[in-house]
Amino acid sequence: MTDSLCRPLPGDGTPGVDAEQADGAQTDAALIAASLDEPEQFAALFDRHAPTIHRYVARRLGSDAADDITAETFLTAFRIRARYDRDRAGARPWLHGIAAKLISRHRREEVKAFRLLARTGQDRIAETWTDSADDRVTAQAASRSLAGALSKLSQGDRHTLLLLAWADFTYQEIAEALDIPVGTVRSRLNRARRKLRAATGDHDPLTGPRELSVLEGDSA
């Protein structure tokens, strides 16, 4: 099992396949249950979700930290897999919740990076915020004000906002990931939106039409 978690991560950032979307595949819950008797089954969960976890962490902390946090996320998940709620077919929120706790250990580094970007307009992590050159040019003008606003959010508000905007989570999925009520998700997002708008105006600094719509209040 440990060897499988140390396998190289895909370099193209391609999202993993959600359990519900894979035709004929076992659900995440079924894989986790099977791994209690056959630990090697857990490797399929890694293959399915490691790319998306890695991409999300890289956007927040950079690719070097993402390598370590992704590996630790799945090692932690493997250790506590007996506690997984099998009524939840998909494990994506659970895994992102574990990753969020690990990201929290790097809170100072994340805030420091945001503040540096806000002051200078230069930071290597910001290069991962957008995937295309056109989007990167568009985002560059707003990245400094965005970084300053993100650095001032509480850790909980930042987790909530970025799971929505960068992991494409629904309110319910965020609630499951962070183990908070959906009402708390809504209040955190409302507070974060106000702060971002005050810092950046109504321009969307988070790179995409879908992210603009969710920041303005639309959600699944």
Rank of each mutant, 00 (worst) to 15 (best):
D3Q: 12
S4A: 15
P8E: 06
L9K: 08
P10R: 15
G13P: 06
A19L: 01
Q21G: 03
Q21M: 11
G24Q: 07
S35Q: 05
P39L: 03
F42A: 08
A44Y: 06
D47I: 06
T52V: 06
I53R: 02
V57M: 04
V57D: 04
V57F: 06
L61T: 02
I69C: 05
L75S: 07
L75Y: 13
T76K: 10
F78I: 01
I80Q: 13
D85P: 14
R92C: 01
P93A: 03
W94T: 00
L95D: 03
R107N: 11
K112N: 14
A113S: 15
F114M: 13
R119S: 13
D123G: 15
R124Y: 12
A126F: 07
E127C: 01
E127Y: 05
T128K: 12
A133C: 00
D134L: 14
D135T: 09
R136D: 07
V137Y: 04
A141D: 08
S143F: 04
S143I: 02
S143G: 04
R144Y: 07
R144S: 13
A147Q: 07
G148P: 04
G148D: 07
K152G: 11
K152T: 08
Q155S: 11
Q155H: 09
D157G: 12
R158N: 10
F169W: 06
E173W: 00
E176A: 14
P181N: 06
V182H: 06
T184P: 02
R194F: 02
D202R: 10
P205F: 06
L206M: 14
P209G: 10
L212R: 15
E216A: 08
